Amino acid sequence: MSCVKRPDGTALDIRWARREEAGEIARLFLISSDGLAAYIWGRMAGPGQSLEDVGAARYARTGVDFSYENCLLATLDGRIAGMVHAFPMSARPAGEVEEDPVLRPYAKLEDPGSLYISGLAVYARYRSQGVGSALMDCAEALALARALPRVSLICFERNEGALSFYRRRGFREIARRAVVPHPTLHYAQGDALLLVRDICGPANGSPNGKGKEKT
Rank of each mutant, 00 (worst) to 15 (best):
G42S: 02
M89Y: 04
A57M: 04
E24H: 09
Y166N: 05
A134E: 15
N70W: 02
L142K: 10
G190M: 05
V102D: 09
H182K: 03
A26S: 12
L12D: 01
G211C: 03
A37E: 01
G132K: 11
A60D: 13
T215N: 13
S32Q: 08
V180T: 02
S114V: 03
Y187F: 15
L193F: 02
A60L: 05
G42K: 06
D53V: 01
D77W: 14
R61L: 12
E160W: 02
V122Q: 11
P181A: 10
E96G: 08
G170W: 11
V97N: 03
G190R: 01
M44A: 15
R127E: 00
G211T: 10
L109S: 12
R197P: 00
A45L: 08
R169E: 11
R158F: 09
A203Y: 03
L115M: 11
D53P: 00
A141T: 12
A178F: 01
L109Q: 11
I154F: 01
S114W: 12
M83A: 12
Y39H: 13
A147H: 14
F66C: 05
Y166L: 05
L193I: 02
G42P: 14
E98N: 05
G23F: 13
A81R: 13
A26D: 00
V54T: 11
R172L: 02
A60H: 04
S128V: 09
G63E: 00
A145G: 08
R177N: 06
P112R: 08
H186C: 07
P112C: 09
I40P: 15
G48M: 11
M83F: 08
P93V: 03
Y116T: 01
G161L: 09
E157D: 15
Q189R: 07
V151D: 00
S133V: 00
R197S: 02
